[in-house]
Computed example of a mutant assay.
Amino acid sequence: MDIESIGNSPIGKIVPISGYDRRFDEEFAHFAFVPSPLPADFVLSGATYSVVVDATAAPARADQAASLLPNPDLLARPATRREAVSTSALEGTYAALSDVFEADFLERGQMSASVSEVQNYVSAAEHAYGWLAEGRPITLNMIEQLHQVLIDGTPSDGPEAGHVRTTQVFIGAGRGRVPTARYVPPPPGDLLRDGLLDWEQWIRQPSSTPSLIRIAAAHYQF
């Protein structure tokens, strides 16, 4: 993580962290980035708003197409699975779309490890759809439930599944040391939980900002 550049960020701050890295049997001392709370509104250029208008038209067309179907799930089901495959690939988990469709008719023990992980994404997404369809707001509790579904049976599964993490994590090479990480998110504790609660409240507050912009900002902040 480029401490000098990120330390001068106008949208966050760095804080010192320390701990014990069991992989190397050594103590570490470094810095983590803590983003500032999201603003109530965004000042964007006319060109950006033009792009947002065009992008907003795409889900509007999908919504219109779904309204013409006797069962909208016929549209949502393949879209969710395509998204699961592409998103999982970003995390290093690869599975063929055809295998993911087939997984709907298999028991967990009949799936490969990669397909099982992608299927977790599908299950988490469908759980979220059901939550919102019931008119329930996005909450930290919802996120914790989705986290538990997402990592069920994976190498990341463990005591912290379904809970806000209590350990420091970082983004970088698997065998790299913390000081060489590309990015170090907020440390566990009050800073992390307060940030998540601020995020939850920001999502739920009324705003005149276009939904697509708010979705992008919420994704970034999370």
Rank of each mutant, 00 (worst) to 15 (best):
R22L: 14
R23Y: 13
R23P: 05
F24K: 05
D25E: 14
D25K: 09
E27R: 15
F28N: 03
A29F: 12
A29V: 09
A29S: 14
A29H: 07
H30K: 01
H30W: 15
H30P: 03
H30M: 01
F31N: 10
A32T: 09
A32Y: 03
F33E: 00
F33C: 09
F33Q: 08
V34T: 11
V34Y: 02
V34P: 03
P35H: 02
P35V: 07
P35C: 06
P37M: 08
P37K: 01
L38F: 00
L38P: 00
P39Q: 09
P39D: 04
P39E: 04
A40N: 04
A40L: 07
D41F: 04
F42H: 03
F42A: 01
V43F: 13
L44P: 06
L44M: 13
L44C: 08
L44Y: 11
A47D: 13
A47M: 05
T48R: 02
T48P: 04
T48E: 05
T48D: 04
S50C: 02
V51R: 03
V52P: 07
V52E: 01
V52H: 02
A55Y: 02
A55Q: 07
A55T: 01
T56S: 15
A57I: 02
A58L: 14
P59Q: 08
P59I: 05
P59N: 12
P59K: 07
A60W: 03
A60K: 00
A60E: 12
R61M: 08
R61Y: 01
R61P: 00
A62T: 06
A62Y: 09
A62C: 01
D63T: 15
Q64T: 13
Q64L: 14
Q64W: 13
A65K: 11
A65D: 02
A65C: 06
L68E: 14
L69D: 02
L69N: 10
L69C: 12
L69G: 05
P70I: 07
P70Y: 04
P70F: 05
N71P: 04
N71L: 15
N71Y: 07
P72E: 11
P72D: 12
L75P: 01
A76H: 04
P78K: 00
P78H: 04
A79T: 07
A79P: 03
T80M: 13
R81H: 03
R81D: 02
R82T: 08
R82G: 14
R82H: 10
E83I: 06
A84F: 00
A84C: 03
V85S: 04
V85P: 08
T87A: 12
S88D: 13
A89P: 04
L90C: 02
L90K: 03
E91N: 10
E91S: 11
E91G: 05
G92M: 06
G92Y: 05
T93F: 01
T93Y: 02
Y94F: 14
A95H: 05
A95T: 08
A95D: 10
L97T: 08
L97D: 12
L97P: 10
L97F: 12
S98L: 14
S98W: 07
S98N: 12
S98A: 15
D99Y: 11
D99A: 15
D99V: 11
V100G: 11
V100W: 10
V100R: 01
F101C: 09
F101Q: 08
E102C: 12
E102V: 14
A103L: 10
A103F: 10
